[in-house]
């Protein structure tokens, strides 16, 4: 996936689009990640100042949510569902194989709502049902 390089000026322009939102902090962090691929730590004071919150408030939100990351992502992102419905059809075995092959790209996830066609895996934002290592490799290309 393509992201813009981190820039405080670009971030400020984006934050301005949320000026009229009620309760904007989480939205602001999500917007940063969507644009830059991650939440640069410089965003914390930036968002805090912009919306008149404390840095602790923003840090608290940033560290609460599993989706938010503070380091740039790799070229590919593989999210494996390891919740019950996918466990029932071999997600744990798949997890071992995928993590052995792509240790730096793979993260656990809990449910993509594809529970009748598991194991479910999301590769670079694309959902794969009845996932196998081969299908994941194919989607990574």
């Amino acid at each position: 996936m393509k992201y813009s390089p981190w820039s405080q000026d670009a971030a400020r322009v984006l934050l301005a689009t949320l000026r009229d939102e009620k309760g904007p902090v989480l939205m602001a962090l999500q917007l940063m990640q969507k644009e830059f691929g991650y939440v640069n730590p410089e965003c914390v004071p930036l968002i805090a100042n912009y919306f008149n919150k404390s840095r602790a408030d923003v840090h608290g939100v940033l560290t609460f949510y599993h989706d938010l990351r503070t380091t740039p992502p790799g070229e590919h992102q593989i999210s494996l569902c390891v919740a019950e419905a996918c466990q029932a059809v071999g997600a744990r075995d798949l997890e071992k194989k995928v993590k052995a092959k792509f240790p730096d790209e793979t993260a656990d996830s809990y449910c993509f709502g594809n529970c009748a066609l598991g194991p479910a895996v999301m590769v670079d934002g694309k959902l794969i049902g009845r996932a196998t290592l081969a299908k994941i490799e194919e989607a990574r290309r």
Partner: peptide, 20 residues
């Protein structure tokens, strides 16, 4: 943003308000 507990109604309200 990937939090299961935010399906609990009051946690969801906090999240909509932009908080933890």
């Amino acid at each position: 943003a990937g939090s299961y507990v935010c399906g609990e109604e009051t946690a969801m309200l906090e999240s909509i308000e932009g908080k933890r």
